[in-house]
Amino acid sequence: MANQQPKGDTTDQAIDAFEGAVAGAAAAAPQPGAAAGESNGGLASVAQIVELADQLSACADQLHERIVRDIRAYEGNAVPAKVQAAARALLEDELLLRQRANGLYADAATYVVKSLGKSQQGVVALTTAAAEKIRKIALIGDITGLVAGLLHLAGAAATGQAASVITALDKIHTQLKAIETHRAPAPKPA
């Protein structure tokens, strides 16, 4: 497991890539008579499914590191029950995320999503931004929502249904935008 840290915040780039992919989704919709072997979109090959599984595993790694860091912040003092409950729930989500990523690795050939209408670059940029947000995020509630979106994506990829994957990507995108608003400075009164 290589521990690669992106330089700078990539959220804006990921959101831009995602929005570009959404804008192009209608144009990339399957055309009648299109060749069955074409795979221009994201998650359209075994290698792309494996790449998604790699990204989901990286998100699980960041989630684990974040949970451990938050618990260690108490420096041996009692951890409040609310924090313990949140940490336990997130550890369960981490395990589920790893299981789903492992399932994608194991069955990648059967999970190819036909005609997703989103680029692989957009999918990877979004999951990379999610991993970075998990590492840096301030509000534990934001982590929970982001992890829920990643779990939804992992499950949706396993269905092979483009509509489910798009819904999951939209959920992650929405959560990333919500996180950005939490850290944006308050507007100054006029």
Rank of each mutant, 00 (worst) to 15 (best):
A168Y: 08
I172L: 15
I166C: 02
G76W: 09
V147M: 02
P189K: 12
I140S: 14
D107I: 00
R98Q: 14
L56H: 01
G117N: 07
N102L: 06
K136S: 05
G155V: 01
V112M: 03
L139V: 09
A60K: 04
M1N: 07
L151M: 11
K114M: 05
A21G: 15
F18P: 00
Q175C: 01
Y74E: 08
Q175Y: 01
P80T: 08
K118N: 11
G103V: 05
T144M: 05
A87N: 15
Q31Y: 00
L95Q: 14
L52K: 00
A81R: 12
Y74A: 10
A35C: 08
A14T: 12
T128R: 13
A44V: 06
P30M: 04
K114R: 10
Q48C: 07
R183Y: 07
A25S: 09
A14E: 08
P30E: 12
A14H: 06
L153V: 01
N40K: 08
S39P: 00
N102H: 05
G76N: 08
A148Q: 15
K82D: 14
Q120P: 11
V22G: 01
C59R: 00
N102D: 11
D61I: 07
L43S: 05
A14K: 06
E180N: 04
Q48H: 07
Q121H: 13
Q4R: 10
R66S: 11
V112R: 14
S115D: 15
H173Q: 03
R100D: 15
L91C: 05
V123G: 01
A148P: 00
R66A: 08
E94T: 13
G20K: 14
V46L: 06
A85P: 02
Q121A: 15
P185N: 03
Q62N: 10
V113H: 08
A36G: 08
A44R: 11
A154Y: 05
A47F: 09
C59G: 04
T10L: 13
E75H: 14
P30T: 07
S57K: 02
A60V: 02
D12R: 11
R72F: 13
G141N: 07
R66P: 01
V83S: 10
E132D: 09
D93S: 11
A85R: 14
A168V: 07
V147D: 03
Y111W: 05
L90E: 14
V124M: 12
D9V: 00
G76E: 15
A47G: 12
I67P: 15
L63A: 03
A36T: 13
A87P: 08
T181A: 14
A36W: 11
V79K: 06
Y74D: 07
A178N: 12
A89H: 13
